[in-house]
Write a protein that binds this DNA or RNA. Structure first.
Lengths: 347, 347
DNA sequence: AATATCTATGCAAACGTTTTCATTTTCGAG
DNA sequence: CTCGAAAATGAAAACGTTTGCATAGATATT
């Protein structure tokens, strides 16, 4: 029994061809354009491939046709609840298209993002999704030069320089603020993550501010506090705030911070929404089940991930579409137990 | 001005070589084995590459040398808090080694895992980390046949068939159960995720059971309940349980379930640990800050991720080490506010 | 000064596919 | 049957690197 094996120890397309009594070209076609090969031959090839345990080498193929079958996803962080749902749905959808996903996180460091995009390009990704609009020019230029389909996701803007799929974060901020204001709250505290290199947080904050201004309220600057993307830190900051003068409501830049606030209130024996109303943005896993349920705005992470994957695959196939366009996904305000009208004495 | 560009529109190694006045081979060496090229020449090449905006094609290179520079990570789920920290640290460490990560989730479907591993092999990964020991034989055989470095991570076993890096999940289960038993609880309810295709959960459960048996307790079967990996579902199950006869303590298979239990108690106006003690396993993000803080066992996800990345890179480089070995990472019991001695009347 | 060693580089053959173009086979119509 | 078109296949040239071997200087050794 002669072993027909290439260097790696695994059979290649040539061995399969030999065993099936056809040429390598036909085997290749059997995989890539099955309709071009006679059903009978195809069967024989499939059998030969199965017998040999053949696994094709997509990388070798990608040298000839330009497609690696891999897409990049660059996020600020994988760890936090925020993007996990997005990553999972993006990956699942790519898998559905027989593609794979390279993920990398830059931790809100745009300099690191440059290195990441470069490394993705070295792997010849067929396309890449970046979070939001705040990016260094260098990677964008590299992607443009190489005509790599690029998508900005998660946030939305009419005048987006890149094609984008995302939610209106300004509106999200406006919605939650409006809700509190409509209930009668007049002195909210805003707890937002740092806004540099983070257009989503910036837009949400701007939206909340706009709503506040629309009510004729002039918010003193000390009512705007910065809280990092961290449950524990947010909780600590809120505990500090409880010691000082307690507001009647807190608008949080995202659900993580809001959960921290809720925990802080529980620790400080404050009733929600009796003593304090809390709103978040995002509707992450857990926000519906925490006690009290968190009033928030649902950002459809899953839909964004799916759509982004579909669009990227499509873009990579059709050589066209140089003009940017954008797709807005719906957000929904979700009222739960964490908000109520202000009570006498507070605020 | 003559354009020296290849099909893609981007310059290749040949253009760089031309501009630097050397052969492509030298440019290649400047990248891969810099010591082999004269510093002066190297400078010239670097300049030429920078001028042209050259980005090398690692895939083309990987055809010749066997390394794609990409590693696979196959997890049950990305979405849940459980593995996010692991994924992030694994990716970060790979980046540190100038490698990238392909992630895929199979949702506890071992059949899907087969397809995933196959797809990873088609991408010529340099190595792969799988979660735990429950795997289909097919992908393991494919990996073995191709001599792809494979690591089982997250769980630990002395007699692991694969090299592994992980924590002793049996001991984790034992520790939390022991803690409750030592406090005087005698009739805990166990709330665990489904254990098929999940050796971690199985081991934890076995550990908890062992501790219970060691106390001479014969746990009635209805005291063991299955709860999926979902906060909301766990909360609902616990609310049901509150209606029936309330135990004095609940041992949860992981922190997600434990958080659901805590929320359920808050919803049912039960005091923790006054009316009920709760323990989890994992010490996920949030477990320290929830009110009351969750008593749990810390599994060092980050250390596992880092170590796994280091080891895989090392394995991919050294052609040796066919014999399996295993690395145990420490776990630490963390007592927080969610546990206390049973009170009269309960249980 | 001649020879032996390095060091730095170039040449050209891989690597495992895909794809163009040409050729053969099949099939339906006359 | 024969012919022409369509369908199925094969031969060989890519794809953009890396690397073994060979060569040409440079340096060290006698």
């Amino acid at each position: 029994m002669k072993r027909l094996r290439s260097r790696r120890g695994a059979p290649g397309i040539i061995e399969v061809a030999q065993r099936a009594g056809v040429s390598p070209a036909t085997v290749s076609r059997a995989y890539n354009t099955p309709d071009l090969v006679k059903p009978d031959t195809r069967k024989r090839i499939e059998k030969a491939a199965a017998d040999l345990g053949y696994i094709r080498d997509l990388l070798a193929g990608s040298l000839q046709n330009r497609f690696s079958g891999t897409f990049g996803l660059v996020v600020p962080t994988i760890d936090n609840a925020i993007f996990a749902e997005l990553i999972e749905s993006f990956a699942a959808r790519l898998r559905h298209h027989d593609r794979t996903m390279l993920v990398a996180a830059h931790g809100y460091d745009l300099q690191l993002e440059v290195a990441i995009v470069r490394s993705l390009l070295e792997r010849r990704i067929d396309g890449v999704a970046l979070i939001g609009f705040d990016h260094n020019q260098i990677p964008l230029a590299m992607l443009r030069d190489r005509a790599v389909p690029t998508l900005s996701i998660w946030n939305y803007r009419d005048a987006s320089p890149l094609p984008c799929v995302g939610a209106d974060n300004f509106e999200a901020g406006r919605l939650v603020a409006e809700h509190l204001l409509a209930m009668g709250h007049r002195d909210p505290v805003l707890l937002f993550p740092p806004t540099e290199a983070n257009d989503r947080a910036r837009d949400r904050l701007a939206g909340a501010m706009a709503a506040i201004k629309a009510y004729g309220i002039d918010l003193p600057p000390e009512r705007l506090r910065v809280a990092p993307y961290d449950l524990g830190r947010a909780k600590a900051i809120m505990l500090d705030l409880c010691e000082a003068d307690l507001p009647s409501a807190v608008i949080c830049g995202n659900d993580i911070i809001a959960q921290g606030v809720i925990y802080a209130c529980q620790a400080a024996q404050l009733a929600i929404p009796g003593d304090l109303s809390v709103v978040g943005i995002g509707d992450f896993r857990g926000s519906a089940h925490i006690e009290p349920g968190l009033t928030t705005v649902r950002l459809p992470a899953q839909r964004i991930g799916l759509t982004a994957a579909d669009i990227l695959v499509e873009m990579s196939q059709s050589r066209a579409d140089p003009e940017p366009w954008q797709k807005l996904v719906d957000i929904t305000f979700v009222e739960r137990g964490s908000t109520g009208p202000p009570t006498m004495g507070s605020g």
